[in-house]
Design a protein around this nucleic acid. Structure first.
Lengths: 204, 204
DNA sequence: ATAATAAAGTTGCAATTGCAACATTTTGAT
DNA sequence: ATCAAAATGTTGCAATTGCAACTTTATTAT
């Protein structure tokens, strides 16, 4: 992903900008709590390195990974709004996060900086729409085939390796993990895919 | 919704800007085709009035309303990207749409204009996240209760009237319409809600 | 006013799915 | 190298859901 809030700034400009925006870079250890109640903060967090899980705890204590964010993704400032349940951001790996107050970016009146923010947001909208496309599919089979055909298109190959665990894939597609495994087996048995661990080949 | 690309411009500034951006305002009749193949256009459409359905046709001809857009919503420029299936935008009511080339907004270097675009996009991200929250719920019951509690929070009342048809609600929640009706009946029978047509009261 | 079209509502049934309860394999830390 | 934890994989079963096939009620157009 070549999206970056500081795209088209050189290193010294970037540092000056970070200083002027009072941006704060904070490091987190794996499993560290990055932010609580992120639906109500006026700060945006930009992931410089590592991975962050956005997590929702239901009223009955059930945990759902709402999304997983990686380098250059942003969270906060209502970008991950939830109605009832509070959302938490937890480091999935050792991570570095840059916190900037949203209003300071806007009031900076720096066209390049703001354009970069537009591109990041537009990209986020694309990713969210892609996920919605998958989530609106009615069967697990359709979700899998759709996601695999997406992977096929970005890896430009009918054979590819999943870059997440099946546990996380089940979360992403919002289906039961064991039901996902079962359906993957069905697809293999029907000869629609070949599966060897996380290595998948589309056979149609 | 007080989000508007031309927020903080007065009428004459706005008109000058529209001219400079070569923006085009086009009117559509209900059911009119606003745009085809909207995943591949470099233009953004801003809905000035009316409502637009973003529609996907599956390989097997099945129609799904991917989203419904209303005043000040935007589409195009990959904001509604789809992997395989082409997306169409169709006017749900008589509508007016302003088309602007995305690059012209960015290269305008107009901080107010771009800030407005940021706010529109940020708002869209929020709405998409809200929908994802609903779609990741495992049962129809959970989806309904979550959506109703969202309506309760914005209408600030335990009684409210749905502003879409149950057919569209089923699409939005991505569930079978008749299964939705059945579950609404179950919720009534269990005494969790009261339902009289589209008038809903939450009883807990 | 009435015909046509869309939406709402109901029900039976089969297919899909989630969940529980496991065994096995892989990964990661010390 | 070894132990613990996480991930993978399997299966039976019950619950949920989608689909088909309707009827009834609203809405819209002429």
């Amino acid at each position: 992903m070549d999206l970056d809030l500081f795209l088209n700034f050189d290193e010294s400009e970037k540092n000056a900008l970070i200083k002027r925006l009072s941006a704060k870079k904070i490091k987190y250890k794996k499993e560290g709590i990055v932010a609580t109640n992120i639906n109500n903060i006026d700060t945006i967090g930009i992931i410089l390195s590592g991975k962050i899980n956005i997590i929702r705890y239901d009223y009955n204590g059930k945990k759902t990974i709402v999304s997983t964010l990686k380098q250059n993704d942003i969270f906060g400032k209502n970008f991950n709004k939830s109605n009832n349940n509070e959302l938490y951001a937890i480091a999935r790996d050792d991570s570095e996060i840059l916190f900037i107050e949203y209003d300071k970016i806007i009031s900076s009146k720096n066209p390049t900086l703001i354009s970069n923010l537009v591109n990041i947001l537009a990209n986020k909208v694309v990713l969210l729409n892609e996920r919605i496309e998958l989530l609106t599919k009615k069967t697990i089979r359709e979700k899998i085939l759709d996601y695999f055909s997406y992977l096929q298109s970005i890896k430009i190959s009918k054979t590819f390796t999943l870059d997440m665990t099946f546990t996380d894939l089940a979360d992403y597609l919002s289906v039961d993990r064991t039901a996902l495994m079962r359906e993957l087996k069905n697809l293999s048995d029907y000869g629609l895919i070949k599966k060897s661990g996380k290595r998948i080949t589309i056979l149609y």
